[in-house]
Design a protein around this nucleic acid. Structure first.
Lengths: 235, 235
DNA sequence: CGAAGTCAAGAGCAGTGCTCTCGATTTGGT
DNA sequence: ACCAAATCGAGAGCACTGCTCTTGACTTCG
């Protein structure tokens, strides 16, 4: 896991890393479609065919970048949550939301890679599902903690989850044990709302309409937090 | 505007339409990246260079498809709203939401084109902004009507819009005249929530987690409707 | 009728992802 | 210490792309 044993293994790991790094930089300037194996090879001073010793195809390189992006946002979220007073559940929710947004604004093309349109004919090998849910795992833990601490006071007058939602709720509850169906359903609303806002912001839907996105985002986060059940004062 | 005068003009309009139609079909099977001018030319029995008489570049073709997609979803939304009892504001809201979803499920790649990651170096010529807001215009009209009719009973305990939101609220209010800042802010939350859900559903984020998406979607729509201020019974 | 405009065809250019072959180097077992 | 096996980069090449330019035929319109 640390420094590979043989010189060849070390060189291989190093080059694999360098290729991914250049690819990530290309992604940042050109977007997903501009990923160019020959340009990467040129920058590394090698011939294009040599790249294929490290990534069997362009799609595999992209998949690696996707996994990296999932891990990056997951790690950002985990760190933001860990930095919070764990009893301040509403604060943890807000911290997580802002962590996602900060990361997305800093790496818009990588955000697009994982939360935008799937690029080719779609591919989600088993390697992706683990990293893909790191942020959602954190989210679920916050909700479970808050619910267990009795910190969720559900807003009045909202529709209950339909009975047919029960089986899906069981599935989702693996990420947020203990929550009743109604809260699970509202948790999905809040989570999709978060990414809906970010996609609007990053993909240009707010252009010429909303300028002070930070303010509006913070308000949306507080509103969704209240929807989940956090108290207004703490939200 | 109707049948072009000369034979040449008619032939040109016809071919332009055919090219766009084949391109849209390609989009449906291959996605945005698979748009292939030479394949279109092949299917039309012409040589590839001839395509450039009708669309100066691949990006221009894509832009045309984007505008078409905006118009298509906009028209679907307008029709869904028009089919409603206009006094049933909550019903109009739900109808609009389901119209967007139905259209998106029927044309996932076109949805990705307009609400997914922007494809190349980004392009939003003035031609796109009109069609792009057709659905939002309908949304705003519903809210204005509901508010004027006194049909919006805002849920208790939610945070008020921050004072710094005022200038953006003025801008957004052009689409939904008469609404106070608090409602405008929640309207944005609901609108982004709608597309957040659809992007999750269409881009695969619900895979292996949520199966009965129709049920959950309807619940999300009702929850967001209540957040906007529609009554629970009518929502 | 004839000049001007418009069109499809074809050749061609630069670029891409990817494959295959071929020497050079490194590795690991004996 | 050797040698077969594995691994590597270089290079040529294939099929394909978007796009440009030129050429000759057809339409349009004064």
């Amino acid at each position: 896991m640390n420094a590979g044993r043989t010189a060849r293994e070390r060189a291989r790991a190093e080059l694999t890393r360098e290729i991914a790094e250049i690819a990530r930089r290309q992604l940042g300037t050109e977007g997903a479609g501009g990923l160019n194996l020959r340009a990467i090879a040129r920058e590394l001073g090698m011939v294009s065919s040599a790249i294929y010793r490290y990534f069997p195809s362009r799609d595999d390189l992209l998949t690696a970048l996707i996994i990296d992006a999932y891990n990056a946002v997951g790690e950002a979220v985990e760190r933001a949550d860990a930095a919070c007073e764990q009893d301040d559940h509403a604060g943890r929710w807000r911290a997580v939301c802002h962590a996602v947004r900060d990361w997305a604004l800093a790496h818009p093309h990588e955000y697009a890679l994982i939360y935008g349109s799937p690029v080719p004919g779609y591919h989600a090998p088993a390697d992706t599902v683990g990293p893909a849910v790191r942020d959602t795992v954190v989210y679920g833990r916050i909700l479970t903690d808050a619910h267990a601490a009795g910190a969720l006071n559900h807003p009045d007058g909202f529709p209950p989850a339909p009975p047919t939602f029960a089986t899906d709720a069981d599935q989702i509850r693996q990420l947020m044990p203990g929550l009743p169906d109604d809260v699970v359903a509202r948790a999905v609303v809040a989570w999709t709302g978060l990414f809906g806002f970010l996609s609007f912001e990053l993909f240009g839907q707010f252009a010429n309409v909303v300028e002070d996105r930070a303010t509006l985002f913070d308000h949306e986060v507080r509103t969704l937090g209240r929807l989940i059940g956090f108290d207004l004062e703490s939200a």
